[in-house]
């Protein structure tokens, strides 16, 4: 398209908005290296806030919780979501509106409603039956619930992009149902499964609201820890841990994107 004042204006606006989008994150990263304890000016480069993280037991516990929650929930969601994605694909000729509606439910529900309904449910179950008291387990349950749809949709879209005769070729070439799963389905799905796992992991690390309401007192995750730290008063330490989280999530998300792309290409 020709360059006109209009398109030049658009371009300027674009860069302004990119600055808007990255400024808050950039400031966090910048101040995480600030030698002064200030959010107003940058005094000089220092790693002191990162050093301080290492000595913070609460924070290291939160890190452990975050990783345990992310990995455990992603693994469970991967298994359950893959099964749903496969079922949806195999039976796509049927009327599955109810299933699609059910799968979209966790996606469309506002996370605060999601979180408090789980919390109310878990607390009541604990009080009445002594099960499902708020703990790491209830957090895992809640995370799996919102991860399942994303895994299912990734797996489903991978299947849809596949030549349907491949399934028949595997049957035709003497593969039993178990062999078909092992030698055809799993290898074909592998990139998508990796993508789905990392997406689920990203979602888990990114979540605050649902974790916040389903966690027991001992189960603070990094976002919950940061939340509490902010409420107690802003400290440059938060910048350091936030920077590490931004980095982790960016890496996991890029892995997810790359594998999802590879899954679709082949």
């Amino acid at each position: 398209m020709k360059r006109t004042p209009f398109t030049r204006g658009l371009s300027v606006f674009w860069w302004l908005m990119i600055a808007f989008l990255y400024l808050p994150l950039g400031v966090i990263v910048l101040y995480s290296f600030n030698s002064a304890n200030s959010a107003a000016f940058f005094a000089g480069f220092s790693l002191r806030w990162y050093e301080r993280l290492l000595g913070n037991d609460q924070l290291l516990t939160a890190l452990g919780n975050t990783l345990a929650l992310g990995v455990a929930s992603s693994v469970i969601a991967l298994v359950i979501g893959t099964l749903i994605g496969y079922g949806m694909y195999r039976h796509r000729g049927r009327k599955l509106g109810w299933l699609v509606a059910l799968i979209y439910l966790p996606i469309v529900m506002p996370d605060i409603v999601f979180g408090i309904s789980e919390m109310a449910f878990f607390i009541t179950m604990d009080r009445e039956f002594g099960i499902l008291g708020p703990s790491l387990a209830t957090m895992i349950i809640a995370h799996v619930t919102f991860q399942i749809p994303f895994v299912a949709l990734i797996v489903y879209s991978r299947f849809v992009g596949l030549d349907p005769t491949l399934f028949e070729a595997a049957k035709d070439l003497y593969a039993s149902p178990a062999q078909r799963a092992r030698h055809f389905l799993l290898p074909t799905l592998k990139p998508s499964l990796i993508a789905a796992f990392f997406l689920a992991f990203t979602l888990s690390i990114d979540d605050f609201v649902i974790s916040f309401f389903t966690a027991g007192p001992e189960n603070a995750t990094l976002p919950i820890y940061i939340w509490g730290a902010i409420r107690r008063g802003v400290s440059p330490e938060i910048n350091a841990i936030a920077t590490l989280m931004i980095l982790t999530v960016a890496i996991a998300a890029v892995i997810s994107l790359l594998f999802n792309k590879e899954g679709r290409r082949s």
């Binding site: 400031v27 966090i28 605050f208």
Partner: peptide, 17 residues
């Protein structure tokens, strides 16, 4: 990409600013 970051952290970024 910025929306991949935890919303608590994003809000914290604005608090900094």
């Amino acid at each position: 990409v910025p929306s991949w970051t935890n919303q608590v952290i994003r809000a914290f970024g604005w608090m900094n600013l």
